[in-house]
Simulated scan of single mutants.
Amino acid sequence: MASIFSKIVNGEIPSHKIAENDEFLAFLDAFPIVLGHTLVIPKKEIDYIFDLDDALYSRLFLFAKSIVPALQKTVPCVKVGLSVIGLEVPHAHVHLLPINSMKDADFGNKLKISQDELAELAAKIRSNR
């Protein structure tokens, strides 16, 4: 069964895209823990990030890195943190988190943000790429 991320890649579920190429997709988390919380995924469905072959793994992180300057221009933050958890969705992914303190990396807290606000934020991030 296709993961929710594969359904996003295939256009079956809408998302607020930040960046995309033939191999990867970056989009805003629908249930963010901080403003600008971005998910970066390989389009190829592989559950466990450490099952990615070395070349794909490296390119995933380089693709994620390419998004950071736009996040920093758009969302005031000290740094953009990166987290790999991989339990909620069986599809390899990394979280990019604009953070100002360790409290910003608490996955137990979710922001309340509308789809319209997410769409506007995604457009701002894309314009800063």
Results as ranks from 00 to 15, higher is better:
S127N: 08
F24M: 03
A122G: 01
K103L: 13
P14G: 13
P69W: 14
N128T: 08
P98W: 06
D22H: 05
V80K: 02
H95Q: 12
G36V: 00
A123N: 10
I41F: 00
K73R: 14
H95W: 09
I46C: 07
I8S: 12
G108M: 15
Q72T: 15
K44A: 12
L62E: 13
G81L: 04
Y57Q: 08
K73H: 04
I41P: 01
E12V: 06
L60H: 05
S6K: 12
I67G: 03
K73N: 09
D104E: 10
N21Q: 05
F61G: 08
F61Y: 10
I46M: 07
L82A: 07
L82G: 11
K17T: 12
F61A: 10
V94Y: 01
Y48Q: 08
L35C: 07
V94M: 11
V68K: 12
S114V: 12
H37T: 07
N21T: 09
F107P: 13
I49M: 05
S114M: 15
S3Y: 15
M102C: 15
L39D: 01
L111M: 14
S15R: 04
E45A: 06
K43C: 05
I125N: 03
K7F: 07
A92G: 04
N128V: 13
N128I: 10
R59G: 02
G86N: 15
S6Y: 00
V68P: 02
D104M: 06
M1Y: 14
A123Q: 09
M102P: 04
Q72L: 10
I18M: 00
E45K: 03
A55L: 14
K73M: 04
D104T: 12
D106N: 10
H16C: 01
S101R: 10
K44N: 06
L111N: 14
S3R: 08
L87W: 10
D47V: 15
S83M: 09
